[in-house]
Simulated scan of single mutants.
Amino acid sequence: MLNKLLNKSLRSLFALLVLITGLGVGATMLSMPAHATDQQSSQQQANAKTSDADLWRAVKSGDSGYTTAKGVETGVLINVAGNDGKEVRNKYLTPIMAIAVVGVFGAFLLFYLVNGASKLSHGFSGKMVLRWTKADLWLHWAMAIPCLTLIFTGLNIMLGKYALQPYVGADVWAALIYGSKTIHDYAGPVFIIAWALCVVKWMPMQTFKMYDLKWFLVVGGYINFGPFKGKHPDSGFANAGEKMWFWTLTFFGLFISVSGIMLVLPGLDLPREASMAALLIHGISAIILIAFTIIHIWMATVLSEGGMESMKSGYCDENWAIQHHNLWFDEIKENGTLQYKE
């Protein structure tokens, strides 16, 4: 009887152990898919994060993707050259342009206040000598007016947001910047045509000669003190300073014209790199031409007594011609082309 009870108890205990073991194994088996799923999900999230990082790293570096849009560089979300060019323009060209305008104008104003104008040694003679034809005058002003228009509108486009925008209302600024851009675009073609005609017509008179070197050494005879006072260097029809201005206008006028055409003609469908290069070349050329234009205006008006008259009427005073362009005056006397105003 005792053995039967013992055997029955052992069987019951074994059955209980088997049940407990089975339940444990079952629970383990049930928990394994959930754990594996959690691991797989975490791995997928990590891969997704890495994939997104790689994607945006490629986008920021300027890599091209796929798009159904048609055109140049439509697959590029971020153009690196465009961003770099914009930084160069804002960080360097804009302040340099401001320095060029204020610095050159201020330097010549100071020079004028200290030195004064270059007076005619023998005063005005009253005899007016023909220097420019009517065609020359028309060409000069046909180029000068759009050139000045481009300078003022260009300065507003480049510097207006610093010099004007903080002090005017939003509506006024919007009208100013829109008007400047519109006028700039329409004045450009007029300048290009007049510039090309002036270059072709006046180039034969602008070759440098050996005597031009002396003109630079004595600063053109414009200094009224020290060892330079009263020094009037030899000069032909155009003096060395005018020749330098002409060739500066010729070369940088070409650069600014070509780059301007590239910027205002969307039909060219240029790559962003080419457009940004054109914008930077346009800005650099503008800085140089603005600086030389300020010099040219100062020299032709304030610093040279009687100098502006020849661009108003085409005639200059005989004493002015002898003092500033003696070789040209001697030449027209000798070849019989000297003409006085009646």
Rank of each mutant, 00 (worst) to 15 (best):
Y211C: 08
L148E: 12
F208R: 06
M205N: 14
W195V: 02
K229R: 11
G230E: 01
M210A: 10
V200M: 14
Y167W: 15
G221Q: 02
W195D: 02
V190W: 15
A187F: 01
I151Y: 03
P227Y: 10
K214C: 13
M203V: 10
L197H: 10
V168G: 12
N224V: 05
L148R: 04
L164Q: 08
P166C: 04
T207H: 06
D212I: 13
G188Y: 02
A163N: 13
A163S: 11
K231M: 10
G169I: 14
A175F: 04
G169Q: 07
K181P: 13
S180Y: 01
G169D: 08
F208W: 10
P166T: 03
T153V: 12
K214D: 15
I193A: 13
K201Q: 08
W202I: 08
L164W: 03
L150S: 05
V172T: 06
I177F: 01
Y167K: 03
M205P: 12
A170I: 14
F208C: 09
I192P: 08
F225H: 13
F225L: 09
V168I: 12
P204W: 02
I223D: 13
G154E: 03
D185M: 11
Y222T: 06
L217Q: 05
F208N: 12
W195T: 03
P204R: 06
M203F: 07
M158T: 10
W202Q: 15
